[in-house]
């Protein structure tokens, strides 16, 4: 579990014409908190996540985890990618134990945990299958299991359910809620789906586009444990209306800027 802090983080890509992707982002995430970054596609929210993961550096400002500067990518920050990004040449089992193996942990330390996690995500019987034999939802469950097996301090999720059909997506959201309520890991969840953000997060940050900055923060006080039944509750609808209004005005600002 980790505390994450961003101080005036900005990012410029220096191509033929420099592109300002992020502008002065300040963000404090408490230990064990579930935070959603909500914004239109291509608004720079993935850039923010890549900086947290250590895949990219920031051009300005500082990104801290537990008070220390974020460095190279590492198993303390587990990343779940949009298309799962499993190694297609490894079986489900080999994918899940890849992390602990790379860290040189003894088998006795992770094999039991890996088996348990595979059962949790409902893939016990698919341990010897290859990713190509799985559906998109199953692949993403492997993607989650292989990260959780490393017991990361923070989970960074980049539109992990964006490519799934509506039904699978809901099942995955419930699965994530169940798992998270058990582990209480800090989660940064990037999405463009308003329902998803409200259902999962403690706080939703609505991002504006080009360059991305954090427009508004909305605390979601829906009681936990939550389930997809909450999607139709009046409080949920209220949050949704608030966020939609916020996104519309953010879009308007971007258009007129």
């Amino acid at each position: 579990m980790a505390e994450i802090a961003l101080r005036k983080v900005a990012k410029t890509y220096f191509s033929a014409t420099p592109v300002r992707a992020l502008e002065s982002v300040d963000l404090d995430i408490a230990e064990g908190e579930f935070v959603a970054l909500l914004g239109p596609s291509g608004c720079g929210k993935s850039t923010l996540l890549n900086i947290l993961a250590g895949f990219e550096g920031s051009s300005e400002g500082s990104a801290l985890i537990d008070g220390g500067a974020i460095g190279r990518p590492g198993p303390d920050r587990g990343v779940v990618f949009q298309e799962a990004a499993l190694f297609p040449w490894l079986t489900v089992w080999e994918n899940v134990v890849f992390g602990p193996k790379m860290q040189g942990l003894p088998k006795s330390e992770y094999e039991g945990r890996a088996r348990e996690l595979l059962a949790t995500v409902g893939l016990k019987d698919f341990a010897q299958s290859y990713p190509a034999q799985l559906s998109g939802g199953m692949r993403q469950r492997v993607g989650i299991a292989r990260v959780l097996v490393m017991q990361p301090r923070a989970l960074l999720m980049d539109e992990p359910f964006g490519a799934l059909d509506a039904q699978t997506r809901m099942a995955m959201q419930e699965l994530l809620l169940t798992v998270w309520e058990k582990l209480n890991t800090t989660v940064v969840f990037v999405t463009h789906d308003i329902d998803e953000a409200i259902l999962l997060a403690d706080r939703v940050f609505v991002m504006t586009a080009r360059p991305a900055r954090i427009g508004r923060e909305i605390a979601i006080t829906l009681p936990r444990p939550r389930s997809i039944d909450d999607l139709t509750s009046p409080e949920f609808t209220r949050y949704k209306a608030e966020i939609m209004a916020e996104m519309r005005s953010a879009h308007h600002q971007a258009e007129t800027a």
Binding site: G54, P73, G74, A85, F98, G99, M150
Partner: peptide
């Protein structure tokens, strides 16, 4: 993203090349 995934899981330079 495969390379990034490997880095995230703690793979070193040689691991990335080999695996």
């Amino acid at each position: 993203n495969l390379v990034r995934a490997a880095l995230m899981m703690g793979a070193g330079r040689l691991d990335i090349l080999r695996r």
